[in-house]
């Protein structure tokens, strides 16, 4: 089944069919999530109305981790089975994940100022998320640093896999160290600590952000496949053109 859709042509057909559904799901989920999050959910008993930043901050942070997991998974498939579609998926995921991480940092900072009295603090959760952002940037820089795309993909895949150690560190940082950041409250032993009136918009926004990710991912994968075809056609053209030496030999 996986091999069937790992064929780029078949994948492109499937992606074209899925894109409108992903766009519709994103629109509907974000519309409902924003309505309940901004108009029809209570303020927090301690944090007041500032808790509404949670509805964009938490889904951004979830997506930052999900995208990096997808990136590391694609890089592992690329390194082990050398499947070209895995390289393409990794390259398409990286900028989306980097932007979600940026959003998690910025919205977190905007939430931190009124609640903690500071825009930034070098605690374990914030620092490990900042490292995640640099890992994304490092992956993209390394991927583009080589003339040979194959070598770039190999080097950046190794970096992404090594950097995956940061994902559990981010998740458990609030348990392992004393941090200003609050501990896990949505998924925890003994059930969620969030009231359903706040949990519902949060989950709606989470589903909306996830479908947005798959929507943009499908678009970017199509672009990356096209860019790969352009590269290989240009290379073929260069090889087919007679070199200056060949022409001078023919002339003599």
């Amino acid at each position: 089944m996986l091999h069937r859709f790992a064929n780029p042509t078949r994948f492109l057909r499937l992606a074209a069919a899925m894109q409108p559904w992903m766009a519709a799901l994103t629109g509907v989920m974000l519309a409902f999530g924003l309505y309940f999050g901004l108009f029809d959910s209570p303020g927090d008993y301690q944090q007041g109305e500032s808790v509404r930043i949670m509805y964009v901050h938490v889904p951004s942070a979830w997506m930052a981790l999900l995208c990096y997991t997808a990136l590391a998974g694609s890089c592992a498939v690329s390194l082990i089975w050398k499947h070209p579609l895995a390289d393409v998926a990794a390259r398409a995921t990286a900028p989306i994940g980097a932007w979600f991480t940026f959003l998690a940092l910025v919205t977190g900072s905007l939430w931190g100022k009124p609640m903690w009295g500071t825009w930034w603090v070098w605690d374990a959760r914030l620092t490990s998320v900042l490292i995640l952002f640099f890992l994304y940037l490092g992956y993209m820089a390394l991927d583009n640093a080589f003339d040979d795309p194959g070598r770039g993909a190999r080097a950046s895949s190794i970096l992404a896999l090594v950097g995956f150690v940061n994902v559990p560190i981010i998740k458990f940082s609030v348990d392992w160290w004393n941090t200003l950041h609050q501990p896990a409250s949505v998924i925890k032993m003994g059930g969620s600590a969030i009231h359903p009136s706040m949990l519902m918009p949060l989950l709606l926004m989470g589903v909306g952000f996830t479908s947005y990710y798959f929507w943009v991912l499908l678009i970017r994968i199509r672009g990356e496949i096209c860019a790969n075809k352009v590269r290989s056609l240009r290379l073929r053209q260069v090889h087919e053109q007679p070199s200056a030496d060949d022409l001078s030999e023919e002339a003599s």
Binding site: G48, E49, S50, H57, L103, L110, K113, P114, Y212
Partner: peptide, 24 residues
């Protein structure tokens, strides 16, 4: 005004909207 937190809440929503629309 969002209970006095509007200066922090609205920029967060605006930045998210700009980034997600721009990326798309």
């Amino acid at each position: 005004n969002m209970g006095g937190y509007g200066d922090f809440i609205w920029p967060a929503y605006v930045i998210v909207t700009i980034v997600l629309a721009g990326l798309l």
